[in-house]
């Protein structure tokens, strides 16, 4: 067959691939000044929690840890909320309010993260400070040793996690909701025909779609780790080696980039690119797993 001009369309595909390649290439090239300092320096940056522009010593462990703790809190909240909401919408709610509920959740996916951030800063942060962190610490002072003491403003790793959970749960809900809808009706009939109660049927349905839930969870985790502005607005942006004390303010990788990158000089620049590379890799690994493994097993 003669080659027609149609093949020129493929230039667009090639361009997309080049874009992806360039993104990765720029990150790697721009972090090379760090790699040139040797392996032990890279390990130092990864494992220590220090941000000292005076002596030019930096270690981003506090940000990696902060990112993971924030994402973990978010995932736990999102998981509980999204499974319940998806089940509620598909299996429990009266059919009349089903469409409006779905609409609202889908709209929740579309709300810009910076709007979540604004709401988080002015509504959620003071609320969590006055109604969760303060009463908890006041009534059980020993918790202070594990959770840390909250800042006057209320910004904290915990606040960021809760906000992020609220933010990603509509997304997770829509994935799980679609999966529940795709359960064949004869499977439902089979479960009910065995004399199972509604709850027992729901439990089995959740088990049936566990791969979709896992995929939704992983994708939500990827989003949580990569989210920038909403987190940067409520996490406190303080170098905090004790990032596991969740009531204290801290940093995540993304909020570190947002706050520090344009002030960076010297070795701090490649280190921040390296941090971006880590952020990129976490998202990349999560998505490879979902794309290669889970999408396939959905359709069994």
């Amino acid at each position: 067959m003669a080659k027609d001009l149609f093949y020129l369309f493929s230039l667009n595909n090639i361009l997309i691939m080049i874009l992806i390649f360039v993104i990765l290439f720029v990150l790697i090239i721009s972090s090379t000044p760090l790699f040139e300092k040797g392996f032990s320096k890279v390990v130092y940056v990864l494992t220590s929690s220090i941000w000292d522009p005076v002596y030019d010593r930096y270690g981003i462990f506090f940000a990696i840890g902060g990112s993971l703790v924030v994402a973990l809190i978010a995932i736990i909240i999102a998981l509980i909320l999204s499974i319940s909401t998806a089940v509620f919408i598909v299996e429990i709610s009266p059919s009349k309010i089903r469409a409006p509920l779905e609409m609202m959740v889908d709209l929740g996916v579309a709300v810009p993260s910076v709007v979540y951030g604004l709401w988080g800063l002015f509504i959620l942060t003071p609320f969590l400070r006055d109604h969760v962190m303060k009463p908890l610490i006041d009534s059980i002072p020993v918790l202070k040793n594990f959770l840390g003491s909250y800042s006057p403003s209320g910004t904290s790793i915990f606040t960021a996690g809760v906000l992020l959970g609220i933010m990603i749960y509509p997304f997770a809900t829509s994935i799980i909701r679609e999966a529940i809808k795709l359960i064949p009706f004869d499977i439902k009939e089979a479960l009910y025909s065995l004399g199972l109660t509604k709850w027992e049927v729901i439990k089995n349905e959740i088990f049936y779609i566990r791969n979709s839930i896992l995929a939704g969870l992983l994708l939500a985790f990827g989003r949580a780790v990569g989210e920038t502005v909403a987190v940067a607005m409520v996490v406190g942006n303080i170098v905090n080696p004790e990032f596991y004390k969740i009531f204290t303010p801290g940093y995540t990788i993304a909020s570190l980039l947002a706050n520090q990158f344009l002030n960076a000089t010297g070795i701090m620049i490649p280190i921040l690119y390296f941090a971006a590379l880590i952020l990129f890799s976490i998202g990349f690994i999560v998505n490879i797993i979902v794309a290669l493994y889970l999408h396939r097993s959905f359709h069994r």
């Binding site: 993104i23 720029v26 990569g226 920038t228 993304a254 980039l257 947002a258």
Partner: peptide
């Protein structure tokens, strides 16, 4: 689709 968008800006 799931690239952290801040990384895209940085790149």
């Amino acid at each position: 689709i799931e690239f952290p968008t801040i990384v895209i800006g940085l790149s």
